[in-house]
């Protein structure tokens, strides 16, 4: 049973230049205890989507479609109903731990607040839970850290505090938006290890937003690749890396310096992502796609269609044969 079900989500921002469709018809679902990775470059709509789920977008945005947490439809909920869910049933971790904690409040005050916003417990009880929460994410001497201000902690420690805060009320859905991007590589490894340990304990559905295919491979069960507001490919993590199906995914994989040591030149995707103010008429990736055909430039990409391998699905005009052949060639090249 899927814990989070998103159907045909459309998030549009009103701007002075006209409406910008940051998320344009996205559907996905995540089960409890599973990690879904959302991969894409900046501006692909992955953050707008996570903020839509949390109900954290500014008033200039309209959200349409359906977002269900368990049985409950979130779209159309009042502000206060959403507020009661936020930080309780669904929680979020952000990219930059340096700026995500309030600089003038002690760590303890911020954690206790998170507990008492949702649980009718005494300050003492909330404090005990906060200390336990800090201990659970591997913060040494948590009692002392309760009295610290954020600036007294390192980046890795702050991100642990953010994770502890998100997990305090045992959320059913956890959204992590680039949780390790701002961290050094050894700290990133610590946080990834922590998240791997926690995922089995907390039994929440986790949505991991990232641009880093390495982080996806480390932590996710399933992956959705987003490009220009749409999901272009969805698969289990093994399937995605073994049989990538969409030319954009191929481009991403081929341009990773760590995976392509042997190649003379690093593969590059030409050009830049399109403006969402005026997206291309056909498939949104067509202008950058080396395989683009006339139909790609004329007709919008088809809906996500099963590739015949498990749950994998792709939104592309290319035929299954071409996609299998090119995908295999890419994987084969890397083995060489």
């Amino acid at each position: 049973m899927a814990l989070l079900t998103v159907e045909n989500l459309r998030t549009t921002f009103r701007t002075d230049d006209g409406p910008v469709g940051a998320v344009d018809g996205v559907s996905l679902s995540v089960d409890a205890g599973k990690v879904l990775g959302i991969v894409g470059e900046s501006g692909c709509g992955k953050s707008a989507m996570s903020l839509s789920i949390m109900g954290l977008l500014p008033k200039t945005a309209t959200v349409e479609g359906s977002i269900r947490l368990g049985e409950r439809e979130l779209i159309g909920l009042s502000g206060s109903e959403l507020r009661r869910l936020r930080g309780d049933d669904m929680a979020m971790i952000f990219q930059d731990p340096m700026t995500s904690l309030n600089p003038v409040m002690r760590i303890g005050e911020q954690l206790i607040e998170a507990v008492r916003l949702h649980q009718k417990v005494s300050k003492v009880e909330a404090r005990q839970r906060a200390v336990a929460g800090l201990a659970a994410v591997g913060i040494p001497s948590p009692e002392d850290r309760m009295r610290s201000y954020p600036l007294e902690l390192s980046g890795g420690m702050r991100q642990r505090v953010m994770i502890a805060m998100a997990l305090l009320n045992r959320p059913r859905l956890l959204i992590a938006d680039e949780p390790t991007t701002a961290l050094d590589v050894t700290t990133q490894a610590q946080i990834l290890e922590l998240m791997r340990d926690l995922r089995s304990e907390v039994d929440a559905a986790i949505v991991l937003i990232t641009h880093d295919l390495g982080v996806v491979a480390e932590l996710c069960d399933e992956v959705a690749v987003m490009y220009a507001g749409r999901i272009v490919e969805r698969a289990t993590v093994d399937e995605l890396f073994a049989h990538p199906q969409h030319p954009y995914t191929w481009g991403l994989l081929a341009s990773l310096p760590g995976r392509n040591l042997a190649s003379e030149r690093l593969h590059q995707i030409p050009g830049t992502p399109p403006s969402l103010l005026r997206p291309p008429a056909g498939c949104r990736f067509a202008p950058r796609c080396p395989f683009a055909m006339d139909v790609c430039r004329a007709d919008p990409a088809p809906a996500l269609t099963s590739t015949g391998r498990g749950s994998a699905a792709v939104a592309c005009h290319l035929t299954q044969d071409v996609r299998d052949r090119e995908g295999a060639r890419l994987s084969g090249e890397e083995q060489a």
């Binding site: 390192s154 050894t186 490894a189 390495g214 480390e218 890396f241 990773l256 760590g258």
Partner: peptide, 26 residues
Amino acid sequence: HALLSARPVADPVRARSQQRVVLQGD
């Protein structure tokens, strides 16, 4: 060695099998 082994590997199969040194502390 620790720095190199801390890199996330864009390959789920290798990521699962890899022996990783995770440095503790800051």
